[in-house]
Design a protein around this nucleic acid. Sequence first.
RNA 1: CGGGAUGUAGCGCAGUCCGGUUAGCGCGCUGCGUUCGGGACGCAGAAGUCGGGAGUUCGAAUCUCCCCAUCCCGACCA
Length: 564
Amino acid sequence: MKLSRYMVPTLKEVPSDAVVTSHRLMIRAGLIRKESAGMYAYLPLGFRVLRKIMDIVREEMDRAGALEFLMPEMTSADLWKESGRWDTMGPEMFRIKDRNGQEYALAPTHEEAMTNVVRQIVASYRDLPVTVYQMNTKFRDEIRPRFGVIRSKEFIMKDAYSFDMNEKGLEESYQAMRKAYRRIFERCGLETIPVEADTGSMGGSNSEEFMVASEVGEEYLLLCGCGYRANQEKAEYRRTGRQGNEPQADIKKVPTPDVKTIDDLVAFFKCGADKFLKSIIYLADGKPVMAVVTGDREINELKLKRALGATDLELAPDTVVMDVTKAPVGFAGPVSDIKIPVVYDLSVADVVNGITGANEKDMHFTGVNSGRDFTVKNEADITSAVEGDMCPKCGAAMSVKKGIEVGHIFKLGYKYTKSMNVTVLDEKGKTVTPIMGCYGIGVNRTMAAIVEQHYDERGIMWPRSVAPFDVHMVGLGKSPEEIARVEEIYDLLVEGGIDVLYDDRQASPGFKFADADLIGIPVRVTVGKTYFSGGEIEVKSRGGSEILKSAKENLVKLVRETMK
RNA sequence: CGGGAUGUAGCGCAGUCCGGUUAGCGCGCUGCGUUCGGGACGCAGAAGUCGGGAGUUCGAAUCUCCCCAUCCCGACCA
């Protein structure tokens, strides 16, 4: 491909709305252009990279025996109503109507649609197991699109769904996908961290996310040297059991006018936030409950929901707090008799001489001790694990990293096969409901993550497997004769089966080199004065500083070696 | 949805506080010439609804009001 005939609008300056590295570089290197918030056009160079990633995904899915489909983007509301998600999906799902008033969703995911096709086709245990997939655009009305292509309203996802006769089969299908995912990301040159994850609103049991460690990641991962790794939604931690040897003080009621928040309390009592027993009132399925955690920890609503066995959880409105605690928000506590269920975080029992609200306006208790002043009846892990917390497996201190989620696999269970009434006959002619697994990869996001992991101050450094071209050839001929000799080299490479981007523009050498570094094709071939005078062609890899020289005859061979 | 910021040529910015003739600068773009191995130089050009609307005024990029868009932080999220 001749650059003079291609479209690579590289930029020296970055549009002011690009903040994170991958976004800036993808724009500067001419891979993408913004259409509007959360929507991007992929220019030819960017689309080439995207296609390479999709090819890798496709090859590995096919290798794992998954069958590729192409599904409609616009999905009938009936399907969503059947599974119940028409109501539960909320505003993140784009909903549209046709001229007859028929409702549709722009699919944010395809469980229903895929389940629907599959149920029309499979009828017997002989048809299972089967794993189906597609790579297609997904639409999500994100509250806040962000970080360029990492969080957008429209994106390409590879989504796969497995159908098995039983849990044993599901485990096999799940492991096959797990293996495929590892291969996919490895082939893309990405270092991923598989972590345990919560299954979220998709419903289901076992779940693993493939994370790419990155400063711009939107999730926090807890990692332990023993191999335990989980995202913060899911990560457990162990109670320290450290009580120290501070003697128990007497409980005292202390006036605390207008001291409500933890920050206020820290300033008022001049002690650490971990001394406070933060007591928050929630409505779990409409009924008030109190959650008690130490002041330095954040309640993890997912964990709390699980601990309570609730399907719906929200912070209680002020009126309910008033009703339950007989005090305004800010003075709740577990000491006085509370008529609603109370859940204590693991952290609470170890607090000696804690401070907590007295369920009375402008009053707190100090010197509060569990076992004496209140009883921990229902203890659970309901706060998010943080840096330094003890690993649930081995007890060592865990560390925290931020990560971008590029893939997610999980065992869905019977959620869709039941609600959508999928059945097959088993060997005995008995009707059974298949069990599902669900496996996603964010393709665009994977591309951004690769850039996040492969760049330097000059630009992108594509791993060969996803690079838009194999070779970036810089032609530095001036006279028509020289240019003709450069073209010969280009033809030579192309005939040698090498995918070449040839910079034949009339521009200064520095300009061309800078563009080559920015675009980040792994091998650069320079045909310039050393060739015209001494017959030597220069070969350099994007990551290295060494310049290899080659005669015309050996060029293809040398380039192939450098590509490895 | 809360808090903050921004919107002026394709991109990056100045001008706005304190209203006043042809709205500037750098990059990029076009033409000509000189250059030519790490983002060359000279000369000559093209390109702007100053985010939109309404208002104040003799006069608005600049002041007032309303709206829109974008970005950041937060809340939220397979």
